[in-house]
Design a protein around this nucleic acid. Sequence first.
DNA 1: CTAAATGCAAATTATTTGCTCCATC
DNA 2: GATGGAGCAAATAATTTGCATTTAG
Lengths: 145, 145
Amino acid sequence: MSGLSFEDLVSRLRASGVRITAPRRMVLAALAESGSHVTAEELHRRVRADHPEVSVSSVYRTMELLTDHGVVDHVHLGHGPAQYHLTQERHAHLVCNGCGAVSEVDASLSEPFAAEVERTLGFHLDLGHFALTGWCDVCRSARTT
Amino acid sequence: MSGLSFEDLVSRLRASGVRITAPRRMVLAALAESGSHVTAEELHRRVRADHPEVSVSSVYRTMELLTDHGVVDHVHLGHGPAQYHLTQERHAHLVCNGCGAVSEVDASLSEPFAAEVERTLGFHLDLGHFALTGWCDVCRSARTT
DNA sequence: CTAAATGCAAATTATTTGCTCCATC
DNA sequence: GATGGAGCAAATAATTTGCATTTAG
């Protein structure tokens, strides 16, 4: 799912019967060019720079479509808007309540916990969709002093 | 912090210099009477039943005040509104993406994970503020079949 | 040509804020 | 009676939806 170029993605989608329209192409391109996480608003801003007529609804509708096709995913990093990204290996996110910094948790760290929850509670955790919040080292020290 | 009666809470607040107004008293009473988790809207609905003039803003402002005084806390159970509750021992919540059922995770289960994250990443998790999402047994089986 | 997608504006949901009037201490 | 709270309505923020108009295949 990762490592595919932008045009590869377009071909794959067209092959799945997805209509490749100008807005869709532009939104997907903007997403591919963005770093890991972008908000819908940010994508809209980028697309609008070249094509002011593209609307936010198209961004949201495209994200929904691409999500259904497994190409896109999003995370909620606490309060605030959802963050979209091309589908990749799922991992948990840590968001600091103080500075807002986002870091990633390697699956190897969270798997034992997820396994334990599954075993004892019969609940299958998806730690990739909502971030885990807390305090980074720096902010933690700053508040306790 | 737990085990205090409604009137105990009121006295404690008044002692801290908090003005005990009619709306505050009613909102706090509604919260105390509600089970563990209630939304602001639900609290408003309850209070309004007897006193239609009380506004939502008062509910929100009261929740904010009580939060500042450590009497109230809230959790985000995924999408949807925040859920308020009287302050109690913090624990993580599991929300099923399928049926929406909420369950609690005993701290003993999450502590080893939190400790490991703290040790290796220097990040102090607060698993009590945002719920962990995933799939309960029933919904999980239902989707994979 | 026709089903599906777009743009735009208006609706929703959850929460916050400005402001004038009212009540607690 | 002064300071802080309440109510109401309007403002925000993020997203969704209805509908008339375009467009990909």
